[in-house]
Nucleic acid binder design. Structure first.
Lengths: 108, 108
DNA sequence: TCCTGTGCTACATTTATCGTAGCAATACGC
DNA sequence: GCGTATTGCTACGATAAATGTAGCACAGGA
């Protein structure tokens, strides 16, 4: 699994262009990535609470996504335990808020 | 591979809640989905041009994503050939535009 | 007719994710 | 101390999804 340290560019899958938007789209395009950010939007959650919020997704992927999101600087592990958004992550989450309104109108 | 007709709700993976935002986050959280929307943001592209734009992603997934995005009503296949965004898809894409600015500031 | 480009598919290989179980560490109350 | 509960996190076999390469049928254009 991808878990190498965030030393370098890390050639995020399918985006060797170096354009940051591609790296971001790729990171957010992995399973549960968007969902994790969404579930943390209001308050920090423990790893198990987050798992519950994410329909009991397997801890393997959740842990992988959390590591990636932490390396990206969007999520952090509070010293008292529990995952929360960093200021940057909160900012990113704000970017996604209009999606909520859109989804409500969409209603497949 | 997921390819069933859009007959029913289709229980989008990991979102049995019925909340549309979950379905949307799930759909957009599949590989190349966000990227496809992004690459189509300006002009329609043929399937092969889209493939080139997406770093030569395998046509199997691209075709799968395109089918899903079409069923969702975000993408359509123009009668002259070439994939383009529907008005709804364009609207969704607008929602993601702030992401571009964010990514530029992010620059991992 | 041949050539080119379109959307799209087959299929074997590789990779990601799932599901279940369990670990070490850190607390609690007794 | 002892048990018990919770934390973050990992192992590992089974399953689902993505990759890479090749190629199909169809529709023009020369």
């Amino acid at each position: 699994m991808a878990k190498q340290a965030g030393t370098a560019t890390r050639s995020v899958r399918g985006s060797r262009s170096g354009r940051p938007i591609m790296a971001l789209l790729d990171l957010l395009g992995r399973r549960w990535a968007l969902r994790i950010l969404w579930e943390l939007r209001e308050e920090p959650l423990t790893s198990r609470a987050l798992r519950s919020a994410c329909d009991e997704a397997s801890p393997t992927v959740l842990q992988a996504r959390l590591t990636e999101l932490r390396e990206a600087g969007f999520v952090e592990l509070g010293d008292g335990g529990g995952y929360g958004l960093t200021p940057l992550g909160r900012e990113l989450c704000e970017t996604f808020m209009p999606l909520h309104r859109f989804a409500e109108r969409w209603r497949r």
